[in-house]
Nucleic acid binder design. Sequence first.
DNA 1: TCTGGGGTCCTAGGACCC
DNA 2: TCTGGGGTCCTAGGACCC
Length: 420
Amino acid sequence: MYALVDCNNFYVSCERLFNPQWEKKPVIVLSNNDGCAVARSEEAKAIGIKMGAPEFMIKDMIREHGIVVRSSNYTLYGDISGRVMRTLSTFVPRIELYSIDEAFLDLHDMPHYDLQQLALKIKRVVGQCVGIPVSIGVAPTKTLAKMANRYAKKNMRDIGVFYPQTEEQMYAMLQFTAVEDIWGVGGQYAAMLRSNGFNTAADLRNAPDDWIRQHMTVVGERLLSELRGIAAIEWEFETPKKKNICTSRSFGKLLTEKKDIREALSTYASRCAEKLRKQDSCCKTVHVFLHTNGFRTQDKQYSVAIDIKVERATNDTGTIVKYASKALDIIFKEGFNYVKCGCIVMDLVPADCIQNTLFGSNDNTKRKKLMKAVDGINKATGVKDTVRMAVQGFSKVYAMRCDYLSKRFTTNINEIKLIK
DNA sequence: TCTGGGGTCCTAGGACCC
DNA sequence: TCTGGGGTCCTAGGACCC
């Protein structure tokens, strides 16, 4: 059996943790750059704030209803997430971290009759120890556990837990779940399924295998199996290493100057290098992209990307920043209002088996030590660019907007909550 | 004025090989 | 009129997730 534990309106719940006066009030959290609403309290949903609604388009609603608005504070959410996950780990032998606010728990060795009680207990303890409300779904496959979780949220709000134990309960859940609300079915497949008469998970469960195979490939085949209670999606207990690592941001304002974009890009490239070192990988390709704002129809548009193969797989900040900078020199064109750029490091290989180059010095012991020192200092200060490449600069003209940012209550000594 | 960021998997089709 | 068979590797694009 699987349990899927999902934190309710996670970012909003994190914000409320340190501002309990926002309980029962409509609260939303915005995406980077204060762009769109990405988390909404139940009250905000009730008012009609849609997922992904651009902030500037819901200004009136925000004012009228006195909605509390927050900028994204990933430092805070990441720390609270860690606390939730550690608490969950105390209940079961194995846990799969699925996202910042979700985890699958392995219940296979738990006494079968007790699972409902166990789920209730987990929910209660997470509430007591961390203060974050969660919902829990229990079922024989991951897809059904996700579905049970959603059912708990929608239909059993006060209990917050759902474990379909009879055929009738299972059928009620499948019947209740529209195809577009199934994990793994997005907008495209949902439209295709509905136009062929499959409207709910109950319909889909009975779909002919070969038809599904033909229209939804092997992904659909697995989905069908999962709906029928036979697990087709495996556990992933240890987080696999990333195959690509991307750092990109929209700029806080439109940029036209190459030097400003270079500062931004260098910062993103150096962040990529850090992430590489964190998972002990090196990259063989640096990919850089840059584009204008497609929403601004009055502007000339330009969107461009380039791959650069590196001579020798690397995770050295200076080297990756240099390649990214070279890429920018190739793709940048004067005369455009740029809105976003990013760096993606690709073709990752383990750091301990790097192919040396035939010519030139392959001894980079000093650079490795330097990077280790840089990472150490930046970690100790809690500020990622305490030590940075000169080219990253100090102007920060590209910096994101975040007008409603909370303190980093749990990770920065200068920002802890004052009681009195 | 103002519209997020970071990933994965799968397939079809082209390039290339013998 | 008629133009082989079989295989691998790579990439772009589409679908999905949070």
